[in-house]
Design a protein around this nucleic acid. Structure first.
Length: 278
DNA sequence: ATTAATGTTCAGAA
DNA sequence: TTTCTGAACATTAA
């Protein structure tokens, strides 16, 4: 599930361990599951990166970026079930990649753990990184968008607003869970065609994006019933207790009491309150 | 014991 | 051009 708040939490969790450390080794962990995508090959990456200092840990949309003093960088996409850890993992069987770090005499490791194995670890040269970060594939970070940015983004498509929120080219960082939560907070029906939203409703949407995402970051993300998402220290997040609609089909709306409805849009579950959201 | 569903992304087709 | 479909994979619930 890692969406913007979970990835931000990962970055904040690993930053104190990673930033300023030297990379002593980079390796794939031997496990019984199929290997995840690492590109270029582990050997090539290790040759280019070993001995360098990890100067900056940051986030672009749902990607974790480990930047080296050379300007080259690791770009990690957790996708569905990937985690960045600086502690023991949920289980040893799904550890995928290890960064061996040194800071003076101290040795520590950063891990990429991924149960389903859809996540990726890629290494980019400085120029490639710039293209990836600034290129057209990703829109502005959802937390940095003002109402005017949202107006431009939403005017450009006739798809339902819930589906549009998931389009990373329009706004980067929102995923399936937070899209439902944001629309409930904004009082907007998920089926509404994006281009048909009034200025006033777009203003409410922008505020809902800000408040839902920043609250979720404050609570260190959402750990769903499958327990997959954990922070860098393998601890649960807390925002799942604040969900108003996600995964609550048939239960009463916490605002008005009407039963929450589940529908499928673009092959993904959407949850909303038919009374609060118009 | 099958089948459907699960947070994401991307290629390829409609 | 825009939008839709299915696949990548592992695990759990029905």
């Amino acid at each position: 599930m890692p969406e913007l708040p979970e990835v931000e939490t990962m970055v904040r969790g690993i930053r104190p361990v990673v930033e300023g450390a030297s990379l002593a080794g980079f390796r794939r962990v031997r496990c019984s599951c199929r290997p995840i995508l690492v590109s270029p090959s582990v050997g090539v990456i290790a040759r280019r990166a070993a001995g360098r200092t990890l100067s900056r840990v940051w986030r672009r949309a749902k990607r974790v970026i480990l930047e080296l003093d050379s300007g080259d960088a690791f770009v990690i996409e957790p996708r569905m079930t990937g985690l960045m850890l600086v502690s023991d993992p949920p289980d040893a069987g799904h550890l995928r990649v290890e960064w061996q770090l040194t800071r003076g005499a101290e040795e520590r490791s950063l891990w990429f753990w991924d149960r389903r194995g859809l996540g990726t670890v890629r290494f980019f040269r400085r120029a490639e990184l710039q293209a990836l970060v600034e290129g057209g594939a990703l829109g502005r970070d959802a937390l940095e968008m003002d109402a005017e940015d949202w107006l431009t983004a939403l005017k450009s498509t006739h798809r339902p607003v819930k589906v549009a929120l998931l389009d990373q080219r329009l706004a980067a960082g929102i995923g399936n869970l937070y899209a439902s939560e944001i629309l409930h907070r904004a009082g907007i029906r998920p089926q509404t065609p994006a281009a048909r939203l009034s200025l006033a409703r777009i203003g409410r949407l922008q505020l809902a994006v800000q408040s839902v995402l920043s609250e979720a970051i404050r609570y260190e993300g959402s750990t769903l019933s499958d327990g997959t998402y954990r922070n860098a220290l393998n601890q649960s997040g807390g925002y799942q207790n604040a969900h108003r609609v996600y995964d609550r089909a048939g239960e009463g709306c916490l605002t008005c009491g009407a039963p929450i409805v589940r529908l499928v849009q673009a092959q993904r579950s959407t949850f909303y309150c038919p009374r609060c959201q118009r």
